[in-house]
Nucleic acid binder design. Structure first.
Lengths: 211, 211
DNA sequence: TCCTGTGAATTAGTTCACAGCG
DNA sequence: CGCTGTGAACTAATTCACAGGA
């Protein structure tokens, strides 16, 4: 589990393979070929084998991969063998959707706190979680041993918030704010920008060969 | 606006440059260098110039780019010069967040209908929009002249729904369901998978050089 | 025979570096 | 001079193609 530098595209595909492996497992299949995985994941069998080969050789020639064993290995590789404590910054609707999203907790991402700057929201409850004030950010990070922050705020306050998060000890951030965050070495940021996704679609529509 | 094949990564960056151009415009700046754009967008000046060069030469040597003019060109290139009629399939919390998300309508993506299969949701209103039954899918696509569908459903029904959407005339789909959709030639699908984003973070955490 | 694992070949994407125009 | 525009060089990612083990 120590190869130097793995492409982000490879890591994303591994996460996708894992999803389908679990599906196969639920169906009681105990073996799967690179071809079958590739078809489900929308890639090629060579790509699947190459992706896996960076981490070892898990298959049996002539047979394929053991569904259960490969699942375990992928979870190990992806760091999903444990739970992660997540803080959500910003209590808008998207944050609400994330808190309730079953896909996160199923994978071990546990939302332990939500903060917002709106005094009207502070103190209200979302299920188990009571929304706290953004002033408590640092205190919460320490108290709840937060490792991952999800930033769901407007662009404006995002950089200041991430500075405070990093200062308090957070080293991984999933950023939904439409800004490029600047963080010190050793802190990982992944950006999700829903408007950009739609704009790549409108690009495709605009440049279609009109029949 | 006719170059053969432009990388997805380039299109995404163009959308990001546009965001910052608009910010600069709001600030009253009327000229910007590739270097300044690159810094905001988290890339390099050479990358910015290369991305733009695929579509023409918009800058002035020694000076940079005209903020307003480049904004217009980028909107043209991205196909943002018009409005798009969007149907949301699935009325969960994420769908609710998308309906209300200002970033979409600001860019011309107008949600014209929402469908769900839950009878308890059908007939309830989200702002202007009354949720309709999934049975009406085809009728709605025609009636509302839907061009883009956003699929926000569980994995299970997603393929069947996309088949119906395509049959009814939809040619662009933003898919949040964790499955690889199979669609005919000429239909564009972009996938967003929030769990995968978090998993790339957990990969990074797990493989960090522990100091 | 079937299907993996993997170097080699290819293709795609990024960065360099500099000529040339304002 | 300053900064763009762009071939050329380089680096990264994907695909090919086949040797070899089950």
């Amino acid at each position: 589990m120590l190869p130097r530098k793995i492409a982000d595209s490879t890591v994303r595909r591994l996460a996708i393979y894992l999803r389908f492996l679990e599906e196969f497992e639920d169906q009681g299949r105990d073996t799967v070929s690179s071809e079958a995985l590739a078809h489900r994941a929308g890639t090629t069998s060579a790509q699947v084998r190459k992706d896996l080969s960076f981490f070892g050789s898990f298959g049996k020639r002539g047979l394929g991969y053991d569904v259960h064993a490969l699942g375990i290995r992928l979870r190990e590789i992806l760091g999903l063998g444990r739970r992660y404590r997540v803080l959500i910054v910003g209590a808008g609707r998207l944050a609400g959707a994330l808190v309730q999203y079953a896909g996160f907790s199923a994978r071990g991402f546990e939302v332990v706190a939500v903060v917002d700057r709106d005094p009207d929201k502070i103190g209200t409850a979302w299920g188990e979680i009571v929304i706290e004030g953004v002033a408590q950010l640092e205190e919460i990070v320490v108290r709840e041993q937060v490792e991952i922050a999800i930033l769901v705020t407007p662009a404006d306050p995002a950089q200041g918030l991430v500075d405070r998060l990093v200062q308090a000890g957070v080293t991984a951030v999933l950023n939904f704010a439409p800004v490029q965050l600047h963080v010190p070495e050793g802190v990982d940021v992944k950006n999700v920008n829903l408007a950009v996704e739609l704009e790549t679609l409108s690009y495709a529509l605009a440049h279609r060969v009109h029949a």
